[in-house]
Amino acid sequence: MTTFVLLHGGGMGGWTWKYVRDLLEAQGHRVYTPTFTGFGERAHLTGRHVGNTVHVQDIVNVLHYEDLHDVVLVAHSYAGTVAPGVIAQAGDRIATVIYLDAIVPHSGERIASLMGYVPEDQLAGLDAMLEAGEGPIGSGVDVMQREAAKTHPHLMDADRQQWLLDNLTDQPMRATSCVIPVGAETIDKPVDYIAAAITVMNAMHDRARALGWTIHDHPGDHALLVGDPEGTVDLIMKIAASKGAA
């Protein structure tokens, strides 16, 4: 039996791992799918203060209070900015690190600027505004994802895509604008990176290669955990087995 902690992407929540979780649990594994503060069923806790450090603490607390050890940590999309901070604080509890088409930040970067959405100087000003208790609470990422799906549908059946889109919630603006204090370059463990073929994360794939991470290609899109849970689980299990974690 292997213990998995699965971290979700932007606008999502622990719920997005439903199909992957069911498959892993059917194989007898323990699976935790925590939701970051301000997302999903915890959307009512959002606020201008909710950023990277809050989300790192969310997961460190899960590891501590659930007394988890020898964990396979899987980070999808936005969670790639959270995983390095978790590893820095609780790396002794984590056996294997897998990035699932996730953001690969460097220390001191901000999501919106490293992804090319907002210039750094504007983002720094926005973050200062939020620090002062002013400015927008949410980033509108859920609306953006629904609009994008109209012209570029996900690689999944229509009903499953509708389930995904219906459950999206906004992402705290602070999580998008704040400095990420602990970047991926600090991770002192081998990392395996699952790279989707159809994604906005191509530059992140290059960053993963530059860090010497092992790359595993997947023919799906950025929502592969929902569109192809079987293929996602297959890759995760192969990686875990190669590390002696499964």
Rank of each mutant, 00 (worst) to 15 (best):
A132E: 13
G14C: 08
K238F: 04
K243R: 14
T81H: 12
G138I: 00
H76S: 08
M12H: 10
I59T: 12
I59Q: 00
A195Q: 08
H205R: 15
Y117L: 10
R174E: 02
T151H: 06
P136K: 07
D221L: 00
G140Q: 14
H216F: 08
R209D: 08
T53E: 12
A83Q: 05
A149Q: 11
K18L: 15
V141R: 03
R93W: 01
M1R: 09
T81F: 04
P219Q: 06
G85I: 05
K189N: 12
T199I: 04
G231K: 03
A197Q: 10
T232V: 13
L100R: 00
I87E: 00
T169R: 03
D206V: 13
P84R: 11
H218Q: 02
S177T: 12
V20S: 10
E66I: 00
E66A: 13
V182T: 14
E147P: 02
G140C: 14
D92P: 09
G231Q: 01
M156R: 12
F4D: 02
V97A: 07
M237V: 14
S139C: 12
R42A: 05
V56F: 06
I215G: 06
M204I: 01
I111H: 00
C178P: 04
F4S: 10
G51F: 06
K243L: 07
V179C: 14
T151M: 13
V20D: 05
I103V: 14
S113K: 06
L155S: 09
S107D: 12
Y65F: 11
G28Q: 11
D22N: 14
G14D: 14
D157L: 02
L45I: 06
V74L: 03
R207E: 08
L224W: 03
Q171D: 06
I103M: 13
D166A: 13
G212F: 07
N52R: 07
D101N: 04
V233A: 04
F39P: 00
A112S: 11
M115Q: 09
V182F: 04
G38K: 03
L235D: 14
I103N: 06
D127K: 09
L130P: 01
P136D: 09
S77A: 11
R30G: 06
K238W: 05
T199G: 05
H55F: 10
G9R: 02
H218S: 08
P153N: 14
P229I: 02
H76T: 08
S107F: 06
H152E: 15
Y32S: 00
V31A: 03
V200Q: 07
A95N: 12
H49V: 04
W15S: 02
A102I: 02
M115G: 03
I94D: 01
E109L: 01
A83K: 00
D127G: 08
Y32R: 07
D22T: 13
K243A: 12
D142K: 12
I98V: 15
R21K: 15
G133P: 03
D217E: 15
T81L: 11
A148Q: 10
G133T: 09
V72E: 02
M201R: 03
V74E: 02
S242A: 15
G85H: 02
K238A: 13
N167M: 07
P84A: 13
V71S: 08
D70Q: 13
V62H: 15
P34N: 09
T214K: 09
I198F: 11
L73R: 07
